[in-house]
Design a protein around this nucleic acid. Structure first.
Length: 720
DNA sequence: TAAACGGATTTTTTT
DNA sequence: AATCCGTTTA
């Protein structure tokens, strides 16, 4: 086998990383430097040049998408299916371990997974059981506390509340929540990781088995690992395994959910003889874009240090556009995209990025208005939709009767006369006797302690589930889901409850779930085919699915800056470059968070291949309030030599509301006219908004530059 | 049980 | 402005 072919297409740094000795390696990979390529080639190198068996390789990523891509590319490169290799997300791999060793992990065989919405409901339940007031103990905060502790590897017993009553209560809640999970046989996301780590910690035999097997561990996006993930890797590597870590400290944007950038540094200190390779040649962006990005991120202290460079030319400077308000900002972006398309570009080469989702609305309006197809990334995901989760809850109950959250979810959905009172009674009995809701319901239905009416209703529910289990036995997965769909009566329920399109959309989604099951059946991937339903339920929990099916149409992409990580587009806009919005006001107080905002800006900028626009609105209406804004500090941090302020000049297609030239726009001046202002001097009126005395004029002053002025206060006189 | 009202909230999100 | 959540009301 000619392994040099693996190295040939690489640059020197990439080659060093891929073909280096099979020891600990840290690859500091800048944006657009070919990091995935290095990871994939490294694996191929291990197999083909070092003679490592795929069975000995474990590669871990953060998203299913990344894992899928990696597997695909490895197989394409190696030329055969990489059987035996473990490639997956931290959560996916942890789940796999826990399934395999459920007894040692003290979990039921069919344990179900809670997503964060499920977890939130359960935390709320626990709060109510403890008789705590939700306004003093906000569910989200309690949930956040529990997750943060788990992300740090701490169980209630590991935490010292030091007599602080607030802390003590949180601890009690953590305990009670754990107990509720245990009873119901459910596990949340953070628990998957913590439990998998504990499994190894407490079972040396099992750990040893995996240590012997996985001598080669590769980690993508290392800067996003949290404490427990790091600990998990460390445990697995032991003294014999090698870790190949790829990451970029400058792209660490998930600190707020427990990611620890410092794991990169820690890794190179704690593991012996780590070879560090820097990938600094960028294959994505032009010189100007890179220059501006480099200098922005250089403002952050405490970096590992790295400066991207490119062989490509300077290209176009980064352009900054100051709009009068958010409408005008959106119109500018729309216009620019239209030009791009008229110039032969495709719409899907364009992306509009923003700090928070609230900004997408105006942009959408303008795009709709201009007839530009677009697609918003983010938003509710398929498997997270209420109707989908309802139907899955029926199936979960079939798979595991103890699953209390699922029981609660559908016991009265569709309504079958089991009210809050009845469920409350069940809950109370269950708690007193330490039983699950299902067991309690079963018993209560037998001894009639709930009253005739409720008993009957409960019996109906119990029968529904039991019959469903009978009915799906021996069926194919898709048929099972279809059967559950019918038995549940959810379709009629939603049609009746939500008239018109909304209800129908829900029903369509239920049908879609059947299709998803069919697709899963045909290609279940690397899972246990003995229990397809169980695997499908796991899939639904661990892989939330894209929000919208990828439309075939050529669409402009709209997404948050976080959502853009890992992507690239020829033409990129970052909208809302304003203090308080970006950097977000929640991050202004804290230096660390501010640095993270700056990294976020860096991530956004480095998405752009050939053109980058940073736009802002001088006045913005947000959450119903209109306010004046200040330009983002990030704008002022950009070096002049790479940046150009855009003068709209004669707009190629006039803004929607703008009158034709020569129309009087107020106070005896017209669009296009040369005017004089007492302070700013002479300039040309290039645009206007509104009419009458409140009209606002956009004037391009010779010296003072672009200004928006209110016509009635501007004191403009015709210049001549 | 569901509609209707009122109040608070409003960063980012994967698993 | 819009949405979500809890409470009140019919």
């Amino acid at each position: 086998m000619d392994v040099t072919a693996l190295l040939d297409p690489l640059n020197d740094a990439q080659r060093e990383a891929v073909g280096g000795p099979p020891g600990h390696t840290l690859v500091v990979a800048g944006a657009g430097s070919g990091k995935t390529r290095v990871l994939v080639h490294r694996i191929a190198w291990l197999i083909q040049a070092e003679g490592v068996s795929p069975f000995g390789i474990l590669a871990v990523t953060f998203t299913n998408k990344a894992a899928g891509e990696m597997r695909e590319r490895i197989e394409a490169l190696v030329g055969l299916p990489a059987t035996g290799m473990w490639v997956g997300t931290f959560h996916g791999l942890a789940h796999r371990l826990l399934r395999q060793h459920h007894a040692e992990a003290d979990l039921p065989k069919n344990f179900q997974i809670l997503d964060s919405a499920d977890q939130q409901r359960l935390v709320k339940r626990v709060l109510q059981e403890q008789g705590l007031d939700e306004s003093s103990w906000p569910v989200r905060q309690v949930q956040g506390f529990i997750n943060a502790r788990k992300d740090d590897g701490q169980r209630p017993a590991d935490i010292d509340h030091r007599g602080d009553p607030y802390h003590r209560t949180l601890l009690e809640l953590y305990r009670a929540y754990e107990e509720a999970c245990r009873r119901a046989g459910v596990v949340d996301f953070a628990e998957l990781l913590l439990r998998a780590w504990e499994l190894w910690r407490d079972n040396p035999g099992i750990l040893d088995h995996y240590r012997r097997r996985f001598r080669h561990i590769l980690v993508d996006e290392f800067q996003d690992t949290n404490a427990i993930q790091y600990a998990w890797l460390r445990l697995l590597a032991g003294d014999s395994g090698t870790v190949f870590a790829v990451g970029d400290d400058d792209q660490s944007i998930y600190g707020w959910r427990g990611a620890r950038v410092e794991n990169i540094r820690r890794y190179s200190q704690e593991f012996p003889d780590v070879v560090t390779v820097r990938l600094e040649q960028n294959y994505r962006s032009t010189g100007h874009i890179l220059g501006a990005s480099n200098q922005l991120i250089a403002r952050n202290p405490e970096r590992l240090g790295k400066e991207l460079w490119t062989e490509t030319g300077h290209g176009e400077p980064v352009r900054i556009y100051d709009a009068f308000n958010e409408n005008e900002e959106a119109r500018f972006i729309g216009r620019r995209i239209q030009q791009w398309v008229e110039g032969g570009g495709r719409r899907d080469e364009c992306a509009i990025l923003y700090r928070s989702n609230a900004l997408s609305r105006v942009l959408e309006e303008v795009l709709v208005h201009s007839g530009i197809p677009y697609r918003i990334h983010g938003g509710p995901r398929f498997f997270e939709r209420a109707e989908i989760k309802d139907l899955l809850a029926y199936l979960r109950l079939v798979a595991s009767r103890d699953d209390d959250p699922s029981f609660e979810r559908v016991v009265n959905t569709p309504s079958r006369g089991i009210g809050e009172r009845t469920v409350d009674n069940l809950r109370q009995i269950a708690r007193e006797r330490g039983l699950t809701l299902w067991a309690t319901a079963w018993e209560a239905a037998g001894n009639g302690q709930l009253g005739a009416r409720a008993t009957k209703a409960i019996q109906r529910f119990l029968t529904t589930i039991e019959e469903l289990e009978q009915a799906i036995d021996g069926l194919s997965l898709a048929e099972q889901v279809e059967t559950a769909r019918q038995h549940s009566g959810l379709a009629d329920h939603y049609l009746q409850k939500e008239k018109g399109e909304r209800g129908q959309a829900r029903v369509d989604n239920l049908d879609e779930l059947v299709s998803a099951a069919r697709a899963f059946e045909l290609d279940p991937g690397d899972v246990d085919t003995e229990d397809l339903l169980g695997a499908f339920l796991t899939h639904a929990s661990l892989e939330a699915g894209e929000a919208q099916a990828a439309a075939g149409e050529d669409c402009v992409h709209l997404m948050t800056l976080h959502g853009a990580k890992g992507l690239e587009f020829p033409l990129v806009f970052i909208a809302g470059m304003e203090e308080g919005l970006f950097p977000h006001r929640m991050a202004l107080e804290d230096g660390n968070r501010l640095e993270e905002e700056r990294r976020l800006c860096y991530v956004g900028m480095t998405r752009a291949m050939s053109e980058l626009y940073l736009t802002r609105a001088e006045s913005r209406r947000l959450h119903g309030r209109e306010g004046h804004t200040r330009p983002s500090r990030f704008l002022t941090e950009l070096p002049e030599e790479h940046v150009e302020s855009v003068r709209p000049g004669r707009a190629p297609s006039a803004p929607a509301a703008a009158p034709a030239p020569d129309t009087e726009v107020g106070e005896g001046v017209t669009l296009g006219q040369r005017v004089h202002h007492p302070t700013f001097g002479e300039g040309v009126i290039i645009d206007c908004e509104g009419d009458g005395p409140r009209a606002r004029l956009h004037v391009n002053f010779d010296d003072a530059g672009l200004k928006w002025l209110v016509a009635s206060h501007a004191n403009l006189t015709p210049a001549g």
